[in-house]
Design a binder for these strands. Sequence first.
DNA 1: TATTGTTATACTCTATAACTATA
DNA 2: TATAGTTATAGAGTATAACAATA
Lengths: 171, 171
Amino acid sequence: MPGMTDGTPGDHDTPPSPEGPPGGSVVFLLSRLGFDASRRFHAVLANVGLDPRQFGVLNVIALNEGKSQQALAEPLRIPPSRMVAIVDELEDRKLVERRRNPDDRRAYALYLTPTGKTVLGDARRLAMDNEREFTAPLEQGDREQLLGLLRRLAAEQDLPIGVHPGLVAPY
Amino acid sequence: MPGMTDGTPGDHDTPPSPEGPPGGSVVFLLSRLGFDASRRFHAVLANVGLDPRQFGVLNVIALNEGKSQQALAEPLRIPPSRMVAIVDELEDRKLVERRRNPDDRRAYALYLTPTGKTVLGDARRLAMDNEREFTAPLEQGDREQLLGLLRRLAAEQDLPIGVHPGLVAPY
DNA sequence: TATTGTTATACTCTATAACTATA
DNA sequence: TATAGTTATAGAGTATAACAATA
């Protein structure tokens, strides 16, 4: 994970609201919570040996079995050269299979192995559990309201699919 | 900025909701919007030649003039060795002044210069404008509701002050 | 002996561009 | 000539640990 310091909890200072201030800013809170949500998600996926980017790739393969590496990389906005290493690792771990495409021997066709499907299922379950825990401070109605508000903001943005860029595992 | 691809807008695919799915997940939307908010904030601050981390440092200095480098770095969770380069740059640009502390000649005492105060003011104004634009899709009532929901989630987390870690400019 | 600030170093992640094999 | 996949390389950003001056 990119600018991730490490797992240390740290102290519990209450943010001193400097003028104009963070505590009252949607942009600020979103940045903070987004970063934190990413970090937690990263930690949760580690339980099945995946990072968010690999999770994104597995998901996209599951929805588009047989497609080529680059065709799958595109919607995730992962550059071709990066995709190589990602698929290498998933293949080494027997989660994904590269089959030669007889019609175009330059391209591969990617498939999930049975193990890959199992791991993806586990990861999705973990993601759902995490969602529940993260939103635990909110009651069901509040959660849906939040979801609606976030969707309205997201609709204005230009967002890639799968997993978000920063998140996508680095730091 | 870390995993930041670059400023290219890109296409406008609607995320295909894969099972269990992103479009309906608070964690996912927060990660995405948080990353996006960070990127925008980064771009906005560039107009006054600052990045989010420098902005955070200027803010903390403004609130604690005369404190030492490390004392100021701590609440921002910036390691001492990183703080050096940050203050170096702010000092080169005459936004911050390092004065020797006669009582303890190991430590510096940091102060904003008049230019530093001006730039900080400009940056705060830009941040407020950005806040308004970012939340433009929401009416006032909705915006406050969102703020309340985000605060409730944030209250459960362990958050450093100033600027968020990922954001803090890098990558 | 401990602490402030600094420097040196090594590591991780990344994109770019050059290369190969097919088409 | 163009495209899928690969490899090599160089850059940005980081934390760690060793260091000097002062306490």
